[in-house]
Amino acid sequence: MVACNGRDHWTGEPLRWDLLGNYDSDESGRQGASYKRARAMQPTIDHRNSEPICDFVICSWRTNDAKHDMSIEELKEFSRLVLEHNP
């Protein structure tokens, strides 16, 4: 956590550390996507590599959802396709 300097590893955006530890699944169910959007910058763990030794970084929920199980190379290619299709 110290290595991230309070920022999303992949985007450099500041993370909302005040959101840690207070996720409410009932409220999430009631609010749906708006609850998730409000927590977009909540810190979470992303694995850059899981083989042979796990390599974790801290990023936002939003980044983790977008990246999901993609490698950084796959994320870059996906992002390039989105940007080219939506200039």
Rank of each mutant, 00 (worst) to 15 (best):
R62Y: 04
L20Y: 12
Q31P: 01
Q42R: 05
G12A: 03
S71K: 06
S60T: 06
W61K: 08
G6S: 02
G21V: 05
K67Q: 12
E73D: 14
R80S: 08
K76A: 14
E74P: 01
A66Q: 12
I53L: 13
R30P: 05
D8Y: 01
D8W: 01
V57T: 15
R80H: 12
C59T: 08
R16T: 06
N86R: 02
Q31K: 11
A40H: 04
K76H: 11
D55V: 11
S79W: 06
G32F: 04
M41G: 08
N22P: 03
V2T: 09
F78Y: 13
H85K: 12
V82G: 09
L15T: 01
I58L: 09
P87F: 00
M41H: 05
G6M: 01
S60K: 00
H85N: 06
Y23K: 06
I45Q: 09
A3E: 10
T44W: 08
Q42M: 11
R48K: 15
H47A: 11
D46E: 11
D24F: 10
G29P: 09
M70W: 07
S34Y: 03
L20F: 14
G32Q: 08
S28G: 11
Q42C: 10
P52E: 06
R62I: 01
D69P: 08
D69G: 15
I72K: 07
Q42A: 13
T11G: 00
P43M: 08
H68P: 05
E74C: 05
D46W: 11
R62Q: 15
C59V: 05
R39E: 07
N5Y: 09
R30M: 12
C59P: 00
D69C: 15
I53K: 15
N49Y: 04
G21A: 10
R48I: 14
H47Q: 11
T44N: 07
C59W: 02
F78S: 11
P52T: 07
I72E: 15
I45R: 09
E74T: 06
R7A: 06
E73H: 06
G12C: 00
T63W: 04
I72D: 13
N64A: 14
E74S: 03
E27I: 02
D18T: 03
